[in-house]
Structure formats: C-alpha cells, structure tokens
Amino acid sequence: MEHFIQVSNFEKIIPYAKLFGEGFVVTVLLSLLAVMIGFALALVLATLRMSHCYPFLWLARTFPRFFGFLEYTSKGTKRESGFWYRLGRFNPLAFIAATYVEIVRSTPVIVQIFIIYHGVFSLIKLPTGTLFGFIKFHRFLPGVIALGMNSGAYLCEIIRSGIQSVDRGQTEAARSLGLNRSQTFRYVVFPQALKNILPAIANEFVAIIKESAVTYTIGVQDIMSAVNAVRGAAFIVMEPLLVATGLYFCLCFPASKGVAYLEKRMRRGDQR
C-alpha cells in the first residue's frame, strides 16, 4: 500500500455523506430505544429479584398442620438454616430473573443479536417497510430488541445495587411513619437510588452506542454499515473508518460529559 491514508480519498466519501448521516440517526435511535427498553425490562427484572415471593413459606403459614415443618423445627423453634429453611426462602420469581441476567451477561452480544434476528424473528414475520425512508424496519426492530434485552440485564444489576446502596435507615424511617412497602419504595428509596445510579446508566447508554455497531451484521444501516458500503464501492477502508471514529466519538464523549454535569447538579442535598 503506497499511501496509507490519503486526503484525496476523503473526497471519495463525499458522495456517501448522506449514508453516514442516516447511519448516525440510526445509531442514535437504536441506542436510545434499546436503553429505554432495557430500562423498562431492568425495572421488571429488579422488581422480580427483590420481590418477596415465597410460595413454600406461604404453604407453611397457610397450612401449618401439613407444611409447618418448613418454618419450624420439631422442637417448635424457627428454622434458621438447613435444606427446609432454604426451600422456604426459595423465590421462583427472583430465580427466573437471576437466570436471565446471568445468561445474558455470560454470552456475547453478537450471539444474542443473531439468536433474536435469525431465530426469534424468523418465526415472527415483520412487515418490510421503512421508517423515515431509510430505516429498514424488519432489521432495525430485531436490533433494538436484542440490544434492549442485553442492556436490560446489565441495567437490572445497576438498579439493584443502586437500591441496595440506599441506607436502611431510610426504609425504617418511612415504614415507622406508616408508609407501606411499595410507598416506601416509590417515594423514598427509588428516587435516591436513581440519583446514585445515574452515572452508571449513562455509562450503559454510551456502551450501547458502541455495541450497536455490531448490528450491521444483521443489516441494520447504522454508521458501521455506511463504512462497509463505502469500502465496497470506493475500495478505501481507513478513511471511512476515521469518519466513523469521529462520529462515534462525537456521540459518546458529549453524552458521558453531559450526564456527569447533570449528576453534579443533582448532588444537592445528598447526605443524610
């Protein structure tokens, strides 16, 4: 290769500028929607993981004559360890949520995207229309859902840790005022948790912007697919890649800085 990067090659990209512009919009929309879906999913998952659903304990309390042994030993004292104790504490909802989170966190995004696109959406036929004239709906939607399901698992852990980081005394104060469990969560714990986890959510958003580049493999026309289009048509690689680098940087850097600023402003009144 004579000249690694040539200024004249950048001129060859100009006809494809529209492609990059559309790719930029697709990447932004894809990431925004994915994080929104992810956040909603994460709320559900975190609720499940922190739920108080103990069917075996319920059995023990509702039919103490038959299932009382789950809660009490033969001597009449409360169980605090052992198999029956653990069975009593078994929470199927939390188990399902934890299983989902661990599977998603332990597999590559590209595998998940392929499973959603080639697997799930080969069974569900999507209309092959376009949004705004350039977003291929039947490729875009599986991409959004796959990324959303992926970030849901990560955001679930972020939300859970945020909730657990709120001081126990806050819950105690709210409960002692007569608020029930869900009011305590809604008015006291969750607003404080949200403030704690805002930077982590922003990081997740930035991570999703970057990870969304993988969706070009299922034909989503994002920034990365514009690079590929130029490469195929004009036989240059480094120049379009540099343009993509610039675009991704312009997205991620201000996003992370912006939320850091927001976080600083919300710090007001943050201590007990």
Binding site: E172, Q183, D270, R272
Partner: peptide, 27 residues
C-alpha cells in the same frame, strides 16, 4: 407510634416541608 432515630433518617431528596407532609398526604 412515632419514631425518632439516632441518625435522624430524614429523607435527603426532600425539603423539610416535604419530609413532614409525605406520610400525612400519602398514608
């Protein structure tokens, strides 16, 4: 049964007024 704690446990994200009106309004 009103309870007062060693570490106050005021709600830091609410003003004094909001701290006091939360339970009467919601409960």
């Amino acid at each position: 049964m009103g309870m007062v704690f060693q570490h106050f446990n005021l709600f830091p994200h609410m003003t004094v007024l909001q701290n006091m009106t939360l339970a009467p309004r919601k409960v």
